[in-house]
Design a protein around this nucleic acid. Structure first.
Lengths: 206, 206
DNA sequence: GTCTATACCCGGATAGAC
DNA sequence: GTCTATCCGGGTATAGAC
C-alpha cells in the first residue's frame, strides 16, 4: 500500500483543502439533507467558490459519496469495543442521540437511496447487509451463551434490531421526547430467553 | 355538516377533475417521491397543463398535502376490522408489501418531514401520535386479556411496534428479499407473555 | 376552466482568465 | 488552484388570451 506519511510539498495544501471541504459538506448535508444542500452553501462555508469545490470533487455526487464513506468509517470505528450485539447497538443509538443532524442525514438518505437509481443506493444496500451480518454473528454467540432467546433465529432478531433502531430514530426525529436509548434497551430485554433461566447477565447490561 | 349528495350542475365537473388530479398525483408521488415529482408530470397524466393543475390546487405544496391526507384516510379505513393490535399491524404491513411505491413515498416523506419546516411535518407528527395512541389502547386491552406480556408497558410496546414496522419497510425497500410480514409476526410473538401460560391465542394469529 | 407564454428562481457543470 | 462568467436544464407560479 502507498506511503502513509503526510505528504510534503505542493500536495499538502490540496489535501488539507479536500478534508476541509469534506467536513463542511458533512455539516451542510447533516443540516439540510441531500436535496436541501447545494454546492454553493458548502463552498461558502469553506470560503471558496462553487467551482472551486468542484475542482476537488468532480461532481456533487462524488462529494456526497465521499462524505458518507468518511462518516461511516468514523462511526464504525468509534463503536469499537463491543461485548454483545445488544450493547453495541445501544451505544450506537445513544451516541446518535447526540447528533440529530447526522441521524437525519442517514435516515433521509437511506430512504431516498431506496431507489436503485440513487447514487448512494449501493452504499446503503451494502451497509445494511454488513450490519445484519455482524449483528447475526453477535446474536448467535449470545444464543450459544444462553443470553439470547433461542426460539427465534439470530437472523430474524438481527433484522428486527436493525428495524427497531431505524424506526426509533425516525420517531425521535419527529418527536424528541421519544427516548430511543431506553426503547432499544427494552427491545434487548425482549431478546433474552423467555424465562430468566440461564442468565444473570442481560444482553445489554454494563 | 354539508350535504353529502353528489353535487349537480356546474360544480360537478370541477370536483371530478379534482379527484382525477388527486389520483394522478398519488401515482406520480408514489413513483418518484416528493422531490422527484413535478407538476408537469402530474398534469401530463391527466392531460392538462401545469397551470391547469394549479387552478385546482393553489400550489404544489397544497396538492402534496391533499394527497397525503386522502391516502391516509383510505388506508386507515381499509384496515378497518381489527381484533388485536398485532393483527392490525400485520395486515397493514402485508397490504403495504403490495405497494412499494406508496411505501417509498411515506418512508421518504416521513423522514424528510422530520424537519419542522417541511410542509408535511405537522401531518406526520400527528399521524405518529395517533398511531401510537391507537396501538397503545389495543395493547392495553391485549395485556388485560393476557395475550400481551405485562412486564413491558403498552406505550413502549406500541412505540417499538411502530419502529419495527417503519424499519422493516426501509429494509424491504432496500432489499425486497426481506420478508416484512414474517418479521412483524415474529415481533408479535415477542410481545406475548414470557411463558405461554394464559394464552392459546397469539396476538396476531388468524 | 383551460390554455400558452413568460417571469423568475435555483441548481450543477464547464470554459477560460489569472 | 481558484476565480468569474456563462450555459443549460429544471422547477413553480403568474398573466392574460380564449
Amino acid at each position: 500500500m502507498p506511503s502513509s506519511r503526510k505528504p510534503r510539498g505542493p500536495y499538502r495544501k490540496g489535501l488539507e483543502r479536500r478534508e476541509q471541504i469534506l467536513r463542511a459538506a458533512l455539516e451542510v448535508f447533516a443540516e439540510h439533507g441531500d436535496r436541501g444542500s447545494s454546492l454553493k452553501e458548502i463552498a461558502d462555508r469553506v470560503e471558496m467558490s462553487q467551482a472551486g469545490v468542484l475542482h476537488y470533487f468532480g461532481s456533487r455526487e462524488e462529494l456526497l459519496l465521499a462524505v458518507l464513506e468518511a462518516r461511516d468509517a468514523l462511526d464504525t470505528a468509534s463503536v469499537g469495543d463491543i461485548h454483545s450485539p445488544g450493547e453495541g447497538m445501544t451505544r450506537t443509538v445513544a451516541h446518535n442521540a447526540q447528533q440529530p443532524g447526522l441521524v437525519s442525514l442517514f435516515v433521509t438518505l437511506s430512504s431516498a437511496a431506496t431507489d436503485p437509481a440513487h447514487p448512494a443506493h449501493a452504499f446503503f444496500a451494502h451497509r445494511y447487509d454488513d450490519l445484519a451480518r455482524t449483528l447475526t454473528e453477535g446474536l448467535t454467540t449470545g444464543r450459544d451463551q444462553g443470553v439470547v432467546r433461542s426460539d427465534i433465529s439470530p437472523e430474524k432478531l438481527a433484522r428486527l434490531l436493525l428495524a427497531v433502531s431505524d424506526g426509533l430514530q425516525l420517531q425521535w426525529l419527529m418527536n424528541p421526547d421519544v427516548d430511543m436509548t431506553d426503547l432499544v434497551e427494552t427491545f434487548n430485554l425482549m431478546c433474552r430467553p423467555p424465562d430468566g433461566t440461564t442468565d444473570g447477565q442481560a444482553p445489554a447490561a454494563p
